[in-house]
Each structure stands twice: as C-alpha cells, then as structure tokens.
Amino acid sequence: MSSGGFSTEKPDAELPPWQEMLPGSVLDQAGNSVHRKTGFWRGGGRRPLLDLKLCVQCLHCWISCPDACFILSDGKVIGIDYDHCKGCGICSRECPPMVNAIVLIDEGRFR
C-alpha cells in the first residue's frame, strides 16, 4: 500500500517494536530529514528556478525557506535542494523585487 511517500516503505523486520520507540512520537535524531526525500510532495505544483546571474547573494531565500533548501558554498547560494523543496514559493516572494532571481515554473513543464 502506498502512503504517498509518508511511509518508510520498510519491511516489519527492520522496524522497531513499540517498546524501543520513544513516547509520544518524540524524535531525538536531529537532522535526519536529510534521509527522507520529500521533494516530490511538490507534485503538480511549482518548482523554484534560481538564476545565479541575477542573484545578489542577500540570502533572504536561504533564511526564509521553511525546508532549508538553499545550498550554500562559502556563504554563497549555489543552488536549491529539490529533494526537499515543497514548492511553497516563499523564496521567490522574498527575493528582492528589484533582483527577482527566483521564478516559479509549473512542474508540468519539466515532464
């Protein structure tokens, strides 16, 4: 049964019994979302495209993205992690209007 990528898709034998799980769905493995690729939740939505030629490196997108998708190198934006981007469009909105380095494109156009 598919659970829309929500599921770990692991066989029972690889999953912990209830006694070994933390109470109340507490999770104590910080940063493990790197291993869960959730970018396809964009579904038929929109994908942000970044034009580095226009970018002025203000980092508004980096600090605003709720999914921490902006990849930095030496303190500079170099790309977007589409494995985790949900297509919310916040980055595009926060990129200064005079710069407008991020545009949102229908996912359908990439198929």
Binding site: F6, S25, A30
Partner: peptide, 22 residues
C-alpha cells in the same frame, strides 16, 4: 535536541498508541 508533534506513518502509529496504553 528533540522534535515533538511529528507525522506518524501507518507503520508507527499503532506502536505509539501501544506506548500510551503501557
């Protein structure tokens, strides 16, 4: 660091209910 209020896929929800029951 811990997170609270996470999503529980079908293969975990029942086990968490069992923890409450325990």
């Amino acid at each position: 660091p811990v997170s609270y209020g996470l999503g529980d896929p079908p293969e975990f929800y029942m086990e968490h209910k069992m923890r409450q029951q325990a």
